[in-house]
Simulated assay, not measured.
Amino acid sequence: MDVKEINRKTITQFRAGGEIEGMHREKLVLLTTIGRSTGNPYTTPMMFHRDGDRLLVIASNIGAPNHPDWYQNLVLNPEVTVEVGDETYDAVATPLTGVERDHMWTMLKQLYPFFADHETKTDRTIPVVSLTRR
């Protein structure tokens, strides 16, 4: 499976405004971060959960031992761009911590049980990130 090719195809389909093969458009966000080494923008499609005015994204990396690149990028530079539905906006990415992170993580695992499976595959704490419009 070529993840980069799948992501490119998903981004193209999302931006074209039509159906996205194998995914639910209404649950998909395109998150653009700035590369921590290159300074270049990188766009990653991912699932989100709406929590009031903010979006929550999960850096599960399918249970891999390392955080995904997009997460490592936003830790260094939390200024991101969000594309959701038909709108694009600047946002601030904030990894949740403490009780708030634990509460949201428990809720997300109940709503989306595959995240619990991801958690069993890794020793790292899976980050939950809040995307708040600037």
Rank of each mutant, 00 (worst) to 15 (best):
P45C: 11
R124S: 06
I20D: 08
N73K: 03
R36N: 06
T125N: 04
G35C: 02
T88K: 06
P41Q: 05
T94Y: 00
P95R: 08
A59S: 09
T43V: 09
V29Y: 02
R8S: 12
Y71V: 04
P113T: 03
L55R: 05
E83Y: 05
R124Y: 02
P78I: 12
D117T: 08
G39Y: 09
D69C: 02
M107L: 15
L96E: 07
D123F: 06
N66S: 14
H49V: 10
T125Q: 06
D123G: 15
G22P: 03
D90H: 11
N77S: 13
G52T: 12
H24F: 14
G22S: 12
D51E: 14
A59Q: 00
Y89M: 07
G22V: 08
H67G: 07
V84R: 04
E26S: 15
F115L: 14
M1N: 13
G17A: 12
I58F: 01
V128R: 01
W70I: 00
S60Q: 07
W105L: 07
G22Q: 13
A64L: 02
Y42V: 03
G35T: 01
E21T: 15
D90R: 11
A91S: 04
M107Q: 13
H49T: 10
A93D: 00
F115Q: 03
T38I: 05
F114Y: 13
G22K: 14
P41H: 05
T32R: 00
D123N: 14
D86H: 11
T81H: 08
F115R: 01
K9Q: 14
N61R: 10
E83L: 03
G52S: 10
I34E: 10
L74T: 00
L56Q: 01
S60L: 07
L131W: 06
T44P: 00
P78F: 11
H67N: 15
L131F: 08
K109L: 09
E5H: 07
E5W: 08
M104H: 08
R50E: 02
P68C: 04
A64K: 05
D117C: 00
P127N: 09
G52W: 14
S37D: 13
R25E: 05
I126G: 04
